[in-house]
Amino acid sequence: MVRVFEAAAGWPSVRERLAGRVADQDLASLDEAVEFAVRWHADQRRPAGEPYVEHLLEVVCVLAEAVGTTDVDVLRAAVLHDVVEDTECSLEDVRERFGDRVAVLVDWVTKPAPSEGQTREEARAAYLRRLRTAPTDAVLLKLADRLSNVQRLDTHPRPEKRRSYYLETVHSVVPLAQSHPWFRQWYAAWRDAFGHVAADSPDARSQ
């Protein structure tokens, strides 16, 4: 059975869940990161319509509750991981407010815009290849990020996106989990549970 991480009740509820795991001063630091992310992401929504902040909080829950991460810089980076990619916030804004280590982690998981002469697909492929050389904390952040995005993959409104995202996860993200036992087990269960999403894809049948 695939474990699903919920954050629909918002930050106050997630904060209560973290209270026994994360030091009080670090929770206060997370308050600041959540406020910053909420302000930048504003009224953005996920593909199925949920407020975008739910995704950010789910990533925090995965890292803290499943993997046991208590490093506040990693948890703050989880809250902030999409703010450069999906808003007008710059990496320098993140660095100035939260420090260099948080900014470096955010940078690792931020997909860059295509360079001159590069297609969007080529830029995405290069980003995924680069993650193979990422430091452990950045890999854990990416694995938690993708987990949140695919744990309810069948709710995505576009069937073709469901198929392509499943295949990309299997090809490019699951290998990153092999050195991390909890994620390795979770993604193995997820792959089995959601194999039907790509059942009609020739690529999926060749797995």
Results as ranks from 00 to 15, higher is better:
residue 75 L to R: 13
residue 52 Y to T: 02
residue 61 C to N: 09
residue 69 T to P: 03
residue 50 E to N: 08
residue 53 V to N: 01
residue 89 C to S: 08
residue 94 V to I: 13
residue 85 E to C: 08
residue 50 E to M: 09
residue 108 W to D: 02
residue 71 D to H: 14
residue 82 D to L: 02
residue 64 A to Q: 04
residue 101 R to Y: 11
residue 100 D to F: 08
residue 103 A to D: 04
residue 105 L to D: 02
residue 29 S to G: 15
residue 61 C to L: 08
residue 96 E to P: 03
residue 59 V to L: 01
residue 104 V to L: 09
residue 76 R to C: 04
residue 42 A to H: 14
residue 74 V to E: 00
residue 27 L to E: 00
residue 81 H to T: 07
residue 76 R to W: 01
residue 101 R to D: 13
residue 87 T to C: 00
residue 27 L to D: 06
residue 102 V to K: 05
residue 80 L to H: 11
residue 45 R to F: 01
residue 28 A to T: 15
residue 104 V to H: 09
residue 55 H to S: 08
residue 55 H to E: 00
residue 99 G to H: 14
residue 53 V to Q: 07
residue 55 H to N: 06
residue 69 T to N: 02
residue 81 H to E: 02
residue 91 L to R: 12
residue 31 D to V: 10
residue 43 D to S: 14
residue 103 A to L: 07
residue 32 E to K: 11
residue 44 Q to A: 06
residue 72 V to D: 01
residue 77 A to D: 06
residue 39 R to K: 14
residue 73 D to A: 15
residue 73 D to Q: 13
residue 62 V to R: 00
residue 41 H to A: 03
residue 57 L to W: 14
residue 101 R to K: 15
residue 72 V to N: 07
residue 51 P to K: 03
residue 108 W to P: 04
residue 62 V to T: 08
residue 31 D to L: 08
residue 103 A to V: 11
residue 73 D to L: 10
residue 79 V to I: 13
residue 62 V to L: 04
residue 41 H to W: 09
residue 79 V to D: 00
residue 92 E to V: 10
residue 70 T to K: 14
residue 91 L to F: 13
residue 97 R to E: 05
residue 38 V to C: 01
residue 92 E to L: 12
residue 88 E to C: 04
residue 96 E to K: 07
residue 82 D to N: 13
residue 90 S to Q: 07
residue 51 P to L: 03
residue 105 L to P: 03
residue 31 D to K: 06
residue 95 R to W: 03
residue 61 C to W: 01
residue 90 S to L: 01
residue 102 V to E: 00
residue 61 C to E: 01
residue 61 C to G: 09
residue 44 Q to R: 14
residue 101 R to P: 09
residue 44 Q to Y: 05
residue 94 V to G: 04
residue 70 T to A: 06
residue 33 A to I: 11
residue 46 R to F: 05
residue 68 G to D: 11
residue 97 R to W: 12
residue 78 A to K: 07
residue 95 R to T: 09
residue 77 A to W: 00
residue 31 D to R: 07
residue 35 E to N: 05
residue 69 T to I: 15
residue 81 H to R: 02
residue 58 E to R: 15
residue 59 V to P: 03
residue 81 H to A: 00
residue 35 E to G: 10
residue 91 L to G: 07
residue 102 V to A: 11
residue 68 G to L: 08
residue 42 A to Q: 04
residue 82 D to K: 07
residue 38 V to D: 02
residue 56 L to C: 12
residue 74 V to C: 03
residue 38 V to E: 04
residue 45 R to P: 00
residue 67 V to S: 02
residue 75 L to W: 13
residue 47 P to C: 05
residue 40 W to S: 10
residue 103 A to T: 12
residue 101 R to F: 10
residue 83 V to P: 06
residue 32 E to F: 06
residue 48 A to W: 15
residue 43 D to R: 12
residue 76 R to S: 12
residue 70 T to M: 04
residue 59 V to C: 01
residue 99 G to R: 10
residue 109 V to F: 12
residue 76 R to N: 05
residue 56 L to G: 01
residue 73 D to N: 15
residue 55 H to A: 09
residue 84 V to I: 15
residue 55 H to G: 09
residue 77 A to Q: 06
residue 64 A to H: 06
residue 91 L to D: 03
residue 87 T to W: 05
residue 71 D to I: 05
residue 43 D to V: 10
residue 75 L to N: 06
residue 66 A to P: 05
